[in-house]
């Protein structure tokens, strides 16, 4: 256990000094605030509701930006933008170590490869939790500021809604982070893994779901894809507009329970695969 803690501390030290990590985290926060609050606020203040869902009124727009709705705003960007960015993070954390030769250096320091990989994944998980906390705090601060500016009564979100959002958000971001980590390990570099991961998450899964609506067997297969599961998990929390105006990536393809179990399975299987690969592979 002390070895795992030592490896985690070492990985945390290098991650928190890495500008690329903060650029990725900053990009997520910026996108989250932009799509969660800034555009809605612009639509609300300008009176132009074309940005919002069809049929939305200014009152509905304002309600979406209130503190009580923070858990929904907080998670709705995670299946697509959040997941993609965190996948990039996982891929560069695992992949760059091969290009720089740092894994080679670390594997000769004493800890087993299991401990090193465990420490690396634990450190990444701590970053995911940190991102969730900071993201929620930013969203809440925005909502409170808007509520105060619009003289709205302060209604807090329920604790259960906050916990559900944190749980679902953690599962989704962790899954994509670990998917990136596995890709980075497989490709032994960041470029290919980031490229493949983004194409898969942003393009291929959408195409497969499109084909799935026409072909039954393909539809059954798409139900277990990571993007489908992540989108459906968040969709079960925030609801999906049947008119097709939902946030990109938020789906209702499978039930929330099935989606939760599927995402959890990925969270277990992806690091296990990465560890298996790391343990059996020669390091040049």
């Amino acid at each position: 256990m002390s070895t795992l803690i030592a490896c985690t501390r070492a990985e945390l030290l290098r991650l928190r000094r890495w500008p690329a990590v903060w650029v990725t985290v900053g990009a997520w926060l910026a996108l989250s605030l932009m799509f969660g609050y800034l555009f809605n606020l612009l639509a609300y203040t300008s009176g132009d509701t074309s940005f919002a869902n069809e049929g939305s009124t200014r009152t509905a727009l304002l309600a979406e930006m209130m503190p009580a709705n923070v858990p929904h705003v907080f998670v709705q960007g995670m299946p697509m933008f959040g997941g993609a960015l965190l996948m990039v993070l996982g891929a560069i954390v695992a992949g760059n170590g091969y290009g720089w030769g740092t894994w080679k250096t670390i594997y000769t320091q004493g800890p087993s490869r299991t401990a090193v990989t465990g420490g690396s994944i634990t450190a990444l998980t701590m970053f995911v939790v940190g991102i969730l906390v900071v993201s929620f705090a930013f969203d809440l601060a925005c909502a409170l500021a808007i509520a105060a500016a619009e003289s709205q009564p302060l209604v807090w979100p329920s604790l259960s809604a906050v916990l559900e959002a944190f749980g679902a958000g953690f599962l989704v971001l962790e899954m994509w982070t670990l998917a990136g980590y596995l890709l980075g390990t497989l490709a032994r570099g960041p470029a290919l893994s980031v490229g493949l991961g983004l194409v898969w998450a942003l393009v291929v899964e959408n195409l497969l779901r499109g084909v799935g609506t026409l072909l039954g067997p393909v539809e059954a297969a798409t139900a277990v894809l990571p993007g489908t599961a992540a989108g459906s998990l968040i969709g079960a929390l925030v609801g999906v507009d049947q008119g097709g105006d939902s946030t990109p990536g938020v789906l209702d393809a499978i039930s929330g329970t099935q989606a939760g179990w599927t995402v959890l399975a990925y969270v277990v299987v992806l690091p296990a695969l990465a560890l298996w690969l790391v343990r059996r592979r020669d390091v040049a």
Binding site: A10, L13, K104
Partner: peptide
């Protein structure tokens, strides 16, 4: 093989942590 964005000292600090 070291992290290019870290200083020499910080690179060694990382390795020292791995070695406990």
């Amino acid at each position: 093989g070291f992290y290019p964005y870290l200083s020499g000292r910080d690179n060694l600090r990382v390795m020292a942590r791995y070695r406990q």
